[in-house]
Computed example of a mutant assay.
Amino acid sequence: MIRRFGSPPESGRVYTLRHGAYAILPLGDQVLLTHQSQPYPEFQLPGGGIEPGESPLHALHREVIEETGWTIAAPRRLGAFRRFTFMPDYDIWAEKLCTIYVARPIRRLHDPTEPGHSAIWMPFALAVDALGNPGDQHFLAQF
């Protein structure tokens, strides 16, 4: 059974299953996060949805580059969690199945290309509380 974080599913609401891959990217005593400005400001673990036909690891590399501008190496799966949420960019209610990895940030190629995203290095001591969802917080705290 995969642990759920956040609000339970609402009775009678239809949810679309969305698989995603997300990364904890440590470097020294800091971790690389992404800050998403829209639809509301939020710090997140870099990552996102796995496209049809795409492998989770390919999605992880793609999403990290889009949201932070950094390349990564040696991703290792830590676990997964579910959360039920509205996704305004897609106008859907989603059951997000979030797989969490830890990886090594290698090189900054450029600024984030994902609109509204900024790459932020944050001390671990601050990052857990700064993250916008309890699943991300749980995995970063466990790491």
Rank of each mutant, 00 (worst) to 15 (best):
S55F: 09
L32G: 03
I65Q: 09
L17T: 11
L140A: 00
F84A: 06
A141K: 11
I92H: 12
A73I: 04
P105F: 10
G12C: 05
L27E: 14
I24D: 00
S55I: 07
I24C: 02
V31H: 06
E67P: 01
T16A: 09
F124L: 12
A73G: 13
A141M: 04
F81T: 02
S55Q: 13
P8W: 06
T16C: 04
P123V: 05
R76Q: 07
G69R: 00
T71V: 07
E54Y: 07
H61N: 08
F124N: 02
Q137R: 15
Y40F: 10
A94H: 13
V64T: 07
L45V: 10
S37E: 11
F84M: 08
Y101W: 15
M1S: 10
Q38G: 10
P9L: 06
R4A: 03
T113P: 03
E114N: 12
G132W: 03
F124E: 03
I65T: 06
F43M: 14
I2Y: 02
F43G: 09
T16V: 14
V64I: 13
G49F: 14
L27G: 12
T71W: 02
L78S: 04
T85Y: 14
L60T: 07
T71D: 02
G20Y: 02
G116A: 13
G135T: 01
S37V: 05
D29R: 11
I92M: 15
E66C: 04
R13T: 15
Y15C: 10
D89R: 08
P134H: 04
Q142S: 15
D136Y: 05
I50P: 01
I65P: 00
R82V: 11
P8I: 02
I24T: 02
A103Q: 03
A74S: 12
S37N: 06
D29W: 03
F124R: 05
A127M: 08
F143N: 04
P88V: 11
F139S: 00
R18H: 12
P88G: 07
D29Q: 11
G20S: 14
E51I: 05
D89K: 10
N133E: 11
Y40S: 09
I24S: 00
R76T: 11
H138T: 01
T99A: 07
G28K: 13
E51D: 13
T34L: 09
G116P: 13
I2C: 01
P41G: 15
D136P: 04
K96Q: 15
S37M: 13
